[in-house]
């Protein structure tokens, strides 16, 4: 575990993915105004979203996250399509590992949401493995309801908070 986070820090330094470039990692590229949209995120150092080998391509063109129904961890067709492309990218760029972050909306108790976030992250991990990505390149972590990216208290926000985000890090695995 220590090593993978060490590598994540290394990537941060190498690619300028530091807090200054992307102040809210949990907002990510797919957040509001993400995917290069208005008010979008400075992607300097991540490469161009049109370059298929770039981290920006992974984060924005493919999409670094998938969304879930209430209290569910199953992957719908849209999620599976995103993850199939994520797997292809990871299979083509084996110098990267990933930490999959599972999240829940605020409509649930804290402990349950932690466990639910872990379930979601693991569902993504299992799907990526089924698409040929080596398991030792994929770690999971749950944030439960601790890190919402949307702060309103209705379904328009909740649906975006019920997410699993694939966060790339340099390094071929552990």
């Amino acid at each position: 575990m220590t090593s993978i986070f060490g590598k994540a820090l290394l990537l941060t330094a190498l690619l300028g993915l530091a807090a200054c470039a992307n102040p809210d990692r949990f907002g990510g590229a797919g957040g509001p105004g993400g995917a290069g949209g208005p008010g979008g995120i400075d992607t300097g150092g991540l490469g161009s979203p049109s370059d298929p080998r770039s981290v920006a391509y992974f984060n924005q063109t493919i999409g670094d996250r998938v969304l879930f129904a209430v209290d569910q961890s199953t992957l719908d067709a849209v999620a599976q399509q995103t993850l199939t492309q994520q797997a292809q990218w990871l299979n083509a760029n084996t110098q990267y590992s990933a930490i999959i972050e599972g999240h829940a909306d605020e409509q649930g108790t804290r402990e349950y949401n932690l466990a639910l976030g872990e379930r979601r992250a693991n569902a993504v991990r299992e799907f990526l493995i089924s698409q040929g990505v080596a398991g030792n390149r994929l770690r999971t972590i749950s944030y439960g309801k601790e890190r919402p990216i949307q702060v309103c208290s209705d379904e328009s926000c909740y649906r975006l908070n019920r997410r699993a985000v694939t966060v790339l890090s340099a390094g071929a695995g552990v």
Binding site: M1, A115, N122, A123, R125, E126, T140, I141
Partner: peptide, 28 residues
């Protein structure tokens, strides 16, 4: 546990033990 998330701990009434949750492979 280096591979797993551990959380939701609570003491036994005599303080000698801790019951808690651990998630492994998405299962808690």
């Amino acid at each position: 546990d280096a591979e797993s998330m551990t959380f939701s701990p609570r003491f036994s009434p005599d303080g000698s033990r801790v019951v808690y949750s651990m998630s492994q492979g998405g299962n808690t």
